[in-house]
């Protein structure tokens, strides 16, 4: 009987191992392909440095915007019943499933110089979002914000609300309750949501190249540089990929620790 119980687990392990290999082999291939000897030179080339700097600036800004706009939005979605709430939630989650290129085209039709809003921004203020670092941040926020909202909304829903009720029954104003009670309680999910949205922004490609364009030093972020260097200098492309890989791995492992610690 015991051996019978173990049999499916061997199958299970075999299938699961295939899945693990499916992820591990491409990474091993990347590591094997890397020109480790010239890695330092490849990463310190001016184009690579410029792309890394730009990626850092843009993804951090996108994460900050995600917090600024995502926190109130997540709170509304989790706590307030309002007509069309599920529609709003669907709208916010759309960039999660939308191909980023489509997101880029949509952003173009809204914020380009001839776009719905962009034409007014340009005519009235001379503001052009396309082909600018601001445009890159906008494109990255578009795809990153949903990750923050989803994570934090889940945190708000699963927290014990009795502390909030106790605080308001003792006379605390709603904002004080949020700042002194709610926020400390959901802090781990806020951190998780921030890191997730930051990592998503770091890897953004489709919406960025479509909307913000590909201008070295201005909108050419790490993923764009990887894609374009692949033809001219594959060693640099692989080196930059390794940077993205290492950063992502650190983020994911770090997050897992955080969640384990929280639970």
């Amino acid at each position: 009987m015991t051996s019978g119980g173990r049999r499916p687990s061997i199958v299970l392990i075999a299938v699961a191992s295939v899945a693990v290999l499916f992820f591990a082999v491409p990474l091993a291939g990347l590591a094997r392909r890397a020109a480790w000897g010239s890695l330092a030179d490849d990463l310190t080339s001016s184009e690579a440095m410029e792309a890394m700097r730009l990626s850092l600036v843009c993804s951090t800004s996108a994460a900050a915007l995600s917090i600024a706009f995502g926190l109130p939005l997540a709170w509304l979605l989790a706590r307030v019943e309002f007509p069309g709430r599920s529609l709003v939630r669907g709208l916010v989650l759309l960039p999660l499933v939308l191909p980023p290129v489509v997101g880029g085209v949509a952003l173009l039709s809204a914020f380009s110089r001839r776009g719905l809003v962009g034409s007014h921004l340009y005519d009235w203020f001379g503001l052009q979002l396309t082909f600018s670092t601001t445009g890159t941040i906008l494109a990255e926020t578009f795809v990153a914000l949903p990750f923050f909202v989803v994570t934090v909304e889940a945190g708000l829903r699963s927290m014990d609300r009795r502390y909030e009720e106790a605080a308001s029954s003792l006379g605390a104003r709603p904002f004080t309750v949020f700042r002194r009670v709610t926020l400390p309680l959901i802090l781990p999910t806020v951190v998780a949501g921030t890191v997730l949205s930051w990592a998503r922004a770091l890897g953004e490609f489709g919406a960025t190249i479509t909307f913000a364009g590909n201008i070295a030093g201005r909108t050419q972020t790490l993923p764009l540089a990887v894609y374009l260097e692949l033809e001219s200098r594959p060693d640099v492309a692989v080196a930059l990929s390794l940077v993205l890989l290492a950063v992502s791995l650190v983020v994911i492992v770090g997050l897992r620790e955080r969640w384990l610690g929280a639970s």
């Binding site: 364009g213 590909n214 201008i215 070295a216 894609y227």
Partner: peptide, 8 residues
């Protein structure tokens, strides 16, 4: 170069 958009 900061005015050139490069299409792939």
């Amino acid at each position: 170069t900061d005015r050139i958009h490069r299409g792939d």
